[in-house]
Design a protein around this nucleic acid. Structure first.
Lengths: 126, 126
DNA sequence: CGGCATCCACACCGATACTG
DNA sequence: CAGTATCGGTGTGGATGCCG
C-alpha cells in the first residue's frame, strides 16, 4: 500500500503504459505481411525461401523485416542450422498459434463476405 | 457443363480473381486505423466528431479516408441528417459487425499475451 | 541460402486552408 | 460540423549488391 504512492496514481500510470504497449503491438500485428506470414506458417515449419514462395508478392526485404519483428515479439521461433548452405527455419510459437486462430477467423470472414463487398464496391463507385 | 469452356480453365480464373480480391480486402482491413474505427463503433452509432474523440491520435484526414473506404466496402453505413449544422452518423453494417467479432478476438489476444510479448522483446533487444 | 546495407521512388499522413 | 484539396516532411518498401 505504501509502494510508489508519490508519483500521482500508479495504477493509472500502469494502465496507460499497458495501453500504449497494446497499441504498439496492434500496429505491429495489424499489417498485411505479418498476417500473411502467420497464415502461411500455420502448423508447419518453413524455410526462408519456402515462405518467400508461399507468400505471393512479398519482397526479400519485407519478409526479413517482418520475420524479425515477429521474432522480437515472440510470435515466431527462428532456428539456424549451422550447415552450408545455411538452413534457417521458422515456426509459430504458442502465442503465435493463438494469434493464428483469430486470423483464421479473419480469413473466414473475408471469404464469407467477398460477394457482399464486391457488389457494395460497385454500387459505391457509381 | 458446357458453359464457358473455351477460355482455358474458367474455374481457375475465377479462383484467381477471388484470391486477388481477397488480398485487396485484406490490405484494406488489416490496417491500424480501420480496425480501431470498427472497434470504436461497436454496437453504437457515432458522429464524425465523436469518433474523432473516441480514437486517440487519429487525424481528421485519416478518419475521413478510412470511413470512405469502409463505406465503400459496405462495412459501415453513413447517414446524413439534412440540418444545420450538418449531422452525420456512422454505424456498422451486418458484415461490419461480423468483422468486429473477429477483431474483438484480436484485442483479447493482445491483452492475454501482453506480458509474454514484453519480456520477449527485452530478451531480444539484448 | 539467408541477411544486411544502400539508394531512391513513391505513398502516407499531418497541417492548413477553404467550402456548404 | 463535416468534407475536400493542397502541400510538404517522413516513412515505407522495392531493387540491387555484397557478405557469411
Amino acid at each position: 500500500m505504501v509502494t510508489k504512492q508519490f508519483t500521482g496514481s500508479p495504477d493509472e500510470a500502469d494502465l496507460r503504459r499497458a495501453d500504449s504497449l497494446a497499441r504498439e503491438i496492434f500496429s505491429d500485428v495489424a499489417n498485411k505481411w505479418a498476417l500473411l506470414i502467420i497464415e502461411a506458417l500455420g502448423e508447419q515449419t518453413l524455410r526462408f525461401s519456402e515462405l518467400r514462395n508461399e507468400i505471393e508478392g512479398i519482397s526479400h526485404k519485407m519478409l526479413t523485416q517482418n520475420l524479425r519483428m515477429l521474432e522480437r515479439n515472440g510470435l515466431v521461433e527462428r532456428t539456424v542450422h549451422p550447415v552450408v548452405p545455411p538452413r534457417v527455419e521458422y515456426a509459430l510459437t504458442e502465442p503465435g498459434q493463438a494469434l493464428r486462430v483469430t486470423i483464421d477467423g479473419l480469413c473466414d470472414w473475408t471469404h464469407r463476405y467477398l460477394g457482399h463487398i464486391e457488389t457494395s464496391r460497385h454500387r459505391f463507385d457509381a
